[in-house]
Design a protein around this nucleic acid. Structure first.
Length: 366
DNA sequence: GTATGCTTTCGGC
DNA sequence: TTACGGCCGAAAGCATAC
């Protein structure tokens, strides 16, 4: 088994950087890209912000109203999301990166993994040169900075890209691997968020080297048969996940906030129809069918609930989807007599592509 | 018990 | 002092068939 060379590319504060490029005068100001829910003038959350805004404590996920408070002394720019713009920029960058790799994996709108083992013959020095060229190309063609990690696997490449931001380049040579991760806080491990971190803290684990001291059995008992082994290996910098193009999407969903909280069918249906039409249109655009239809409800207390059902046969028909959505909402309201919805959504899953799919009758009667 | 498939929840970005 | 989105993929949880 030859040593792999993996790169993780993370586009810096991506949505906000796209907005800076659209309007360069914003580069000197805090820029906050917002998801407005439409309920009141400023209800909603921050999607992302530039580094100037972050100096004020304004970061992804906080309410817009709170961001405005934090920035009331600054001349800040609050902008609504323009997702199609970000997708276009992302698509162009991803196409550039794909051409730089032996194998390529888009891991989100603003990040990607590249395996470059073959084209570097395993040399990390050569990898650093390629990374520098990629950074330059992305900057010249799209005026976007990024942070890059180079490592022997995806796990370490991702941790490395996060190590020096923005506009950073971090190399973790195989020989430096142990020293690199040992002192890191456990929440630097992808998959270790608030909840897992709390659990680890109860076990007196705050750093990766402390995590490494736990035995596999203990980890599996505490975190289950998926996360347990993952943590055991992550503590040692081990990961053999391949870099591969992601398959077709597995689900499409649309969710939105109601003008006011309700459990009244007639107040929910217009929004549900809109969401259903939108997600069904996505299905049509991508020439897919769905086998499963589901609804999502976020209640007044922000608790999340969902219901779904599998259809007799795959469909892309709006009427069929709408009928099932309506049934599921009624079923949900009946099952939770005290539920008052704040946000509602529609989810289609069990997706498959229509074209290229052989007619089943050929198998039956071939 | 194991394999498989479906529903619901979790958590990253 | 609080404040609160819209997506996605994966895992957990559960049921059923063998």
């Amino acid at each position: 088994m030859t040593q792999r060379v993996i790169i993780h590319v993370d586009l810096d504060y991506f949505y906000a950087q796209c907005e800076e490029n659209l309007n360069p005068s914003n580069r000197e100001k805090p820029v906050i890209v917002c998801v407005y829910s439409g309920r009141t003038e400023e209800s909603g959350v921050v999607s992302t912000s530039n580094y100037l805004a972050r100096k004020y404590g304004v970061k992804a996920g906080i309410p817009i109203a709170r961001a405005k408070k934090l920035l009331e002394t600054a001349e800040a720019v609050f902008l609504p999301m323009n997702r199609s713009l970000y997708e276009e920029v992302s698509d162009r960058i991803m196409d550039m990166l794909r051409n730089c790799a032996d194998s390529f994996e888009k891991a989100g709108i603003d990040e990607a993994y590249l395996e470059i083992t073959n084209r570097t013959s395993g040399s990390f020095e050569k990898a650093a040169e390629i990374a520098a060229e990629m950074k330059q190309q992305i900057l010249e063609q799209e005026h976007i900075t990024c942070s890059i990690g180079i490592a022997p696997n995806k796990l370490l490449a991702k941790i490395a890209s996060d190590h020096n931001k923005p506009n950073g380049l971090t190399i973790v040579n195989p020989g430096e691997l142990a020293a690199f991760i040992a002192g890191l806080p456990v929440d630097k491990i992808p998959g270790v968020g608030k909840k897992v971190e709390e659990n680890l803290n109860h076990l007196k684990v705050q750093t990766v080297s402390q995590l490494r001291a736990l035995d596999a059995t203990n980890l599996i008992e505490t975190f289950g048969k998926s996360l347990g082994p993952y943590l055991y290996h992550a503590a040692r910098g081990e990961d053999d996940e391949p870099v591969r193009e992601r398959e077709q999407p597995t689900q499409f969903s649309r969710i939105a906030t109601l003008k006011k909280n309700t459990r009244d069918m007639s107040e929910m249906m217009p929004l549900l129809e809109e969401l259903t039409n939108s997600v069904a249109q996505k299905l049509a655009e991508t020439d897919m069918t769905c086998k499963s239809v589901g609804i999502i409800a976020i209640l007044h207390d922000l608790s999340i609930h969902s219901k779904s059902r599998t259809l007799e046969s795959p469909t892309a028909d709006v009427k069929t989807i709408t009928k099932n959505v309506k049934d599921l909402i009624e079923q949900f309201l009946q099952s939770m007599p005290n539920a008052v919805a704040r946000r509602i959504g529609v989810r289609l899953s069990g997706l498959s592509r229509r074209s290229g799919q052989t007619d089943i009758s050929k198998f039956l009667h071939g």
